[in-house]
Design a protein around this nucleic acid. Structure first.
Lengths: 239, 239
DNA sequence: CGAACGATTGACCGGCATCAAACTCGGTGG
DNA sequence: CCACCGAGTTTGATGCCGGTCAATCGTTCG
């Protein structure tokens, strides 16, 4: 699993962590609150302590595009590092709490350490960005090569895995985002997503009640994400 | 334009460039030759001096997926930095020449300079990765939200722009890749790509002869990439 | 209770993949 | 020089997935 953990912990040296602990600030947010406005000047990364967040931006045509969701323990704001401003608007999906990590911690500009510390920080940053690239690659594959069923199945797998990483149950959790957000993120119509929820429930793969999701058959879900056709048809009669 | 130029030049300090010039190695390749095999141990970045390259990998189902093309002046191999091995297979599309830049130049491990040089190198690296992320973002948008026509139009725009960056004519060039590669890259069927070539030619937007492409109307092309419906229909009769 | 919003389900249609066939171009051998 | 072949490309015919339009339902809130 390539999910980024707290980059502060990832830094290694105890002194660096101490620096970090001093510089980091905490903040609590209400659902719907905006953390970052796209275009704002970049001044640091954020780590989710609790709650859930959504990244999105508005394309040339004025349409909103959801680019990702952020779970406890995950980091966002990386897209602003090079450009100097954030590219995404990030909003809380629930009552949430997060850490802000000033970027100076990474560049070493704030505390030019005696050792090779700034280098270590930079490397943590590179690792963070590398994770983003790997993640984007997965998403491109989903969008380009998967039909709606596989796309949705792999989305559920991803959510389940990250829920577990964040300390929740892997097989029973509450979806923090609306159907509309899911559809937008997966580049599908809302109706299609809704149909997929129903279809997966009918297949006995998941149970749904409103936003509560239970994964009933992890193997079937994996099969759906990997090979859409063959076995799934059989379940229709034999399942 | 966010295309990455030679990272060695991007480093700034003259001494660093001197270091680079010593460490860099050059290599000539025949069309079809493999530069990097996916899975190989990462040991540096590559910059295209002349010719054209294709990145691809094989997905779980054994299908090839083209992930990008590389033009003179551009850098590839970044995807191996964090993992320690290359994720893509890279092959020459033409008789080509490239530089290999040992990764030690970036980490500073080879020549721990007295000044803040290693930091500058790391920042060049971050800028490089940031460019990759921005590029991936564009591609995700294409795959997720654009129909085949817009996807193809924006592909042509991208190629034209990069051709110009590489010192070729922006409006008349030879496509270095096959229709099959284009289709695979854009996640469309070969037939669809072929039809789009024909359609764009019929609209008077481009001229094609085999792999030679001429962009006849840059504005129309932009319109096709931005808004697929409205104006294009009108051209059918009025164009 | 009624309004507003999100979610579900059905009916229909269009874009693109798939299947299939002809055509072009370059290379090889008779 | 031409016949032949094969890979790559083009063009046509058909079918299916998923988007769009539309109606209903359930939940929440004024």
């Amino acid at each position: 699993m390539k999910r980024s953990l707290c980059p502060v912990n990832g830094l290694g040296a105890e002194e660096v962590q101490a620096d970090a602990a001093r510089a980091v600030t905490r903040k609590t947010l209400q659902p719907g609150a905006t953390v970052i406005q796209a275009g704002e000047k970049f001044d640091g990364l954020y780590m989710v302590r609790s709650g859930f967040f959504k990244s999105s931006f508005f394309d040339a045509g004025g349409e909103m595009q959801v680019t990702g969701f952020h779970f406890p323990g995950e980091v966002f704001g990386v897209d602003g590092i090079d450009r100097g401003y954030y590219g995404d608007t990030v909003t809380a999906l629930d009552t949430s709490c997060l850490c802000k990590i000033p970027f100076s911690l990474f560049t070493g500009g704030a505390a030019p350490a005696r050792g090779g510390a700034p280098d270590a920080r930079m490397q943590a940053l590179v690792r963070l960005m590398s994770g983003v690239i790997a993640n984007d690659r997965d998403m491109m594959f989903r969008l380009g090569k998967m039909d709606s069923r596989r796309r949705f199945a792999s989305f559920l797998q991803d959510i389940a895995e990250r829920m577990q990483c964040s300390g929740f149950s892997r097989d029973a959790f509450r979806l923090c985002m609306s159907r509309t957000d899911i559809a937008n993120y997966l580049c599908l119509a809302i109706e299609t997503v809704s149909r997929l929820f129903s279809q997966f429930q009918a297949l006995g793969v998941i149970g749904i009640d409103r936003r509560e999701v239970t994964i009933l058959d992890r193997n079937k879900l994996r099969a759906l994400a990997e090979d859409a056709d063959r076995e799934c048809a059989a379940w229709g009669k034999a399942g």
